[in-house]
Amino acid sequence: MNKLVNNAEEAIHGIEDNMTLMLGGFGLCGIPENCISALVKKGTKSLTCISNNAGVDDFGIGLMLQKKQVKKMISSYVGENAEFERQLLSGELEVELIPQGTLATRCMAAGYGMPAIFTPAGVGTEVAEGKETRVFNGKTYLMEYAFDADFAIVKAWKGDSMGNLVFRSTSRNFNPLMAMAGKITIAEVEELVPVGSLDPDHVHTPGIYVHRIFEGKGYEKRIEQRTVRKKE
C-alpha cells in the first residue's frame, strides 16, 4: 500500500482540464490550502468545483477564480468575492446554487453508494424546476442525484499513511463527506502521524476512502470574520 505522496504537486497528479473536483471546507475553515496553491501553480483550466463556498478574493478557491481556472461552481453560498461576482455577471463563470443540506447529502450519497436522495429542501422554489418529486407520508420531496466527482480534495487535522483521517472542531464540515465521494480522494493533513497512533474508535474517515495523503505545510488558516469579546 502506498498512499503517501511527498507534497501537493504530487498529490494533484492526474487532475486535468475539464474535470470535476470536490473541495472541502466551510468558508475558509478547513480548506485544502496546499492543494489549492498547487492547482493555481499548475494552471489546470475549465474545472467544475463542488464546494460549499468559493473562497474570498485572495484566498481559497478565490485564487483559482483569479486565474480563471474555474468553469463552473456548484455551491450553496458564494458571497464575499468580488472577482467571482464580476465573472458571473460577465458570463465567464457558470454557477449552480443548491441548498447546503442538499450539497452535503449529495456528497454523502456518493460515498454511501446511493444514486439519489429525497429531500424537502427547495420544494416549491426555483431549485425544484425540472426535478422529479415524490410524495411520502403526505409531504413532497425532491429527488437529488449523488455527485460524481473525478477528484475530492480534503483537509484533515491528523492522518496516517493508511489514509485514516481525524478532523478538528468545525473544520470537519464537508471534508469527511467529500472524502467519501471522490473517485480519487486526496487528503492533506496538518500532521502525518505513525500508523497505529490513531485510536481506531476516533477515526472520522476510514482510510479506504483516501487514495493519496501528505502532510501539508505553511497553513495560514485565515479567519474570515474575527469576532471576539473583551475580558471582563
Partner: peptide, 26 residues
C-alpha cells in the same frame, strides 16, 4: 480558526458541545 459558526464568525464551544459533519447537521 477551526472553530466558527455558520456566519463564519469565530466562536467557542461549551462543556457538552458536539461536532459533526455537514450531512449529519442537516
Amino acid at each position: 480558526p477551526d472553530t466558527i459558526n455558520a456566519g463564519k464568525q469565530t466562536i467557542t464551544t461549551l462543556p457538552g458541545s458536539s461536532i459533526f459533519d455537514s450531512a449529519m447537521s442537516f
